[in-house]
Design a protein around this nucleic acid. Structure first.
Lengths: 250, 250
DNA sequence: CGTGCCAGGTGCCGT
DNA sequence: ACGGCACTTGGCACG
């Protein structure tokens, strides 16, 4: 069976279904009233409440409250999960090694347990990333400025890795730091670090922050440091047609 | 009913259960074979496959494949969800405004639809954060060095916000950048930015990176810049009587 | 593996 | 809202 679901299961049914799900490498889904304990890189406690628990066959373990995109507690892929019944209590326990982390869920009441032997061979195809900004600049360097010649992508230097390294028409070394979204102080610091590292060994080095926009603070720091800005929005490459993104949702 | 679940539902049952879930502000959980389209800050497409869909009453929308901690597609809290049946096809659509983003799920087959009217009044209590490192330093400044006097926490300066600002026994201004985990190049850049900003207006300014450890690159840059390092691991404060605070006093 | 860095980052808290 | 930043960040690519 690819999917199974049981409302208000007994302890025996929970154990039974859980083990069957594990053997099938299915995704386990539990609606439960529970308490949660975590100890590892940090440590946390969560009192009794209703949550959704998701356990994936790769060891990922998610506990979701009824709000927010983020799980309140979790365990990353590679963790090992187990179910334990002792003294009229039932626990889910997930252990990660390196770093050692333990997630423990006391199931006070299980409203629903289900599993899903999911078959999925598709991968996400995403466009509009920073990497595509770099590609775009290599295809059309004049987007930065007339005479700009990009030479390296993801080039390791003394203290970090430069997004794009090139030269301008006057022979200056040009360092580009790309941001797919509005650039902040962090981005300026990053660019400054690269520029200073290159200036240790070269005469004329320019630094250009390339992004759709700048925060106010980033603009101030950029100007103070004598760095530059070029406005550029990451492209959304259409799979088939060159048209705008209106094709699907209008 | 607090929980409801239907295996292999008809279109009508899907609509029925989905609407009931919405009116109860329940969490909706769907096991489905589906395709996914997203357009917003970026744009993506995901071909047919089995996924778990979670829709929360706050508008959060998660689509999980069978691996990884992260959803393959999602919509953040505040988004509006709708279910639409047209021409023998059934779609889930979630819209976010500001920025405008659309997530569309074509449900090719629904194995299970369930909802959970979760009641939860508990919040996570977590310890071992960077904020607690700051508290610890204010309680025991000699952890940094003898004679250190912390003055401000989260102090806004010219180009950013300093974690801890204080003075040493010789009257130098001291800037602390705290990291709860191994500090990297980014952390050093951050500290350097604060130190340089303060040096514009003060004579003697020291910068100290406070973290459990340093990456090799961070160490190199830190030394080159004349910045300092103090080893400190974020404390895990025991909530109850079980004094697990050994790390504090040994 | 550790190092470095992007992410549709998310979430929190300030002005 | 915009800004600055932490996060059990997660995930990836590369040496």
């Amino acid at each position: 069976m690819k999917v199974e679901a049981k409302l208000n299961p007994t302890y025996e049914e929970i154990v039974d279904i859980f083990n069957r799900a594990l053997s099938k490498e299915a995704i386990v889904n539990i609606f439960a009233h529970c308490r949660v304990f975590y100890d590892g890189r940090a440590k946390s406690e969560l009192g009794p409440g209703d949550r959704v628990i998701l356990i994936k066959p790769d060891g990922s373990f998610l506990i979701h409250q009824k709000e927010k995109r983020e799980p309140v507690n979790w365990q990353p892929p590679g963790s090992s999960v187990g179910l334990e019944v002792k003294e009229d209590k039932i626990f889910l326990r997930s252990i990660r090694r390196k770093p050692r982390e333990i997630l423990e869920v006391e199931l006070l009441n299980v409203y629903l347990i289900s599993y899903f032997q999911a078959e999925d061979y598709e991968e996400l195809a995403l466009t509009g990333s920073e990497a595509e900004m770099a590609d775009l600049i290599f295809e059309n360097p004049s987007l930065i400025e007339d005479g700009f010649k990009p030479l390296f992508k993801e080039k390791p230097i003394k203290h970090g890795i430069v997004d794009v390294l090139g030269v301008d028409k006057e022979g200056n070394i040009v360092i580009l730091e790309l941001k797919r979204r509005r650039a902040d102080l962090h981005a300026v610091s990053q660019l400054k670090r690269y520029v200073e590292a290159m200036r240790e060994e070269h005469e004329k080095v320019r630094g250009i922050l390339v992004a759709p926009s700048l925060t106010s603070g980033a603009k101030k720091l950029l100007e103070k440091e004598g760095l530059e800005f070029r406005k550029l929005t990451p492209p959304k490459r259409g799979k088939s047609k060159r048209g705008r993104q209106k094709t699907l949702f209008d």
